[in-house]
Amino acid sequence: MSLGQDGPPTRTRMPEGHGAHGGGTRRPQPRRALVTVVGVVVLLIAALAFANRGGGPSADGAGEGSGTASGGSTGSRGSGAAPTAPTGQKPVEGKSDAGIPAGFAHTEQGAQSAAANFAVALGSTDMFNAGRRHAIVGAIYDPAVSAALQADLDRAYSGATLKSLGLSADGTAPAGLTFVSRTVPIGTKTTAGGSADARTVEVWCTDLIGLAGTGSTKPVSTAWFTITEKLVWAGGDWKIRSSTQKEGPAPVAADNQAASADEIAGAVRDYGGFTYAR
């Protein structure tokens, strides 16, 4: 759903239902092979421990331009896919007044982490509550656009939109049902171009949305989409200047038996979300 025709091109997701090298054939001796394996494992453990202390190489270096959000990823410069691995950059410790992670690093990794966390906030149930929505928008959007955006979002999160999701006029679920709206970032990447104070980050996501509980006519379903966030460095942190969204890429659905409505409601209640940091 495109919002703010006269403002920034911001789009908020509103679901409607919702060979080996070197040659040679000699097999290694068992003892030598064991020593080699143990040595590699020890080196990997040491490298991971060193990275998690934040004492590795430049935090903005190894993963430039590609990677996943949760837990981070690195890869050689110019390569396509990047394996999942800690980058050495410590997660943010601060939070905004809206409870959203804040204080992201003024780096490419920091921008990717910010974009992932912003996607989570924009896909949460809090966006369906006027007070919480205003706090979220004020916390993650550039002040130059947030005021005008508030009115657009108030109109979007009302009337037919809430009714189509089975919610009341104030965004609450009917008695006995649990409203589920949760976005989960799968990975992030920074697009070409940009500058130290302006980055464009794509966040590949899946989500859950619907009403969980006995008798629900809007069962919880999943979708896949990619959010493109144009970020600017404002007030000492990354903020959204504008965002757009497109469908996919969506994988082939697994042949899983669907859980009952009560099981889904319990899972959403018992399993908390994550703070995403590169």
Rank of each mutant, 00 (worst) to 15 (best):
A267Q: 06
G54E: 08
T214A: 07
A82N: 12
L44N: 15
G63H: 11
A51C: 11
L122F: 00
A147Y: 03
E247C: 13
V35D: 11
T214Q: 04
G110K: 04
A105E: 05
G67N: 14
I45G: 13
R241K: 08
R241W: 13
G17W: 01
T12G: 00
S79P: 14
G210Q: 04
T217Y: 00
D237E: 02
G75Q: 12
S96L: 14
L208P: 04
G94P: 10
I264E: 08
L211V: 14
A169L: 11
V92Q: 13
E93Q: 11
R132D: 01
A223G: 12
P174K: 06
S124H: 08
A47V: 15
I209V: 08
M1Q: 11
T222V: 09
V232S: 07
T25N: 15
T10Y: 00
E229M: 11
Q150L: 15
C205E: 09
P28L: 15
T183I: 01
A119I: 05
R77N: 10
G187V: 09
Q29M: 10
A144E: 02
V184I: 13
G17N: 07
G67A: 11
P185Y: 07
A253E: 12
P83C: 09
D97K: 09
I227M: 11
R182D: 04
A51M: 14
R77T: 10
T188N: 05
V203C: 04
P8M: 03
V137I: 15
A102L: 07
T74H: 13
E263K: 07
D255C: 11
N52R: 14
A253D: 12
A119H: 04
S158V: 07
A173N: 05
R269K: 14
P8E: 02
T214H: 03
V137S: 01
I209K: 04
P185C: 08
I240W: 00
V180P: 05
D270V: 04
A121E: 03
M1G: 06
S2D: 01
R199S: 07
M127R: 01
L149T: 02
G103P: 02
N256Q: 12
Y141W: 04
P101Y: 06
V92T: 15
G103S: 03
A33Y: 10
S195Q: 00
M14V: 09
G123M: 02
A254R: 14
A192E: 10
V41L: 09
L43Q: 12
R133A: 00
W238L: 09
A258W: 11
T74R: 15
T244G: 14
T74K: 10
K218Y: 12
V252M: 13
G78S: 09
T244C: 03
L34G: 07
G65W: 14
G166D: 03
A33F: 04
D262E: 12
A147T: 08
E229K: 04
S158K: 11
P251Q: 09
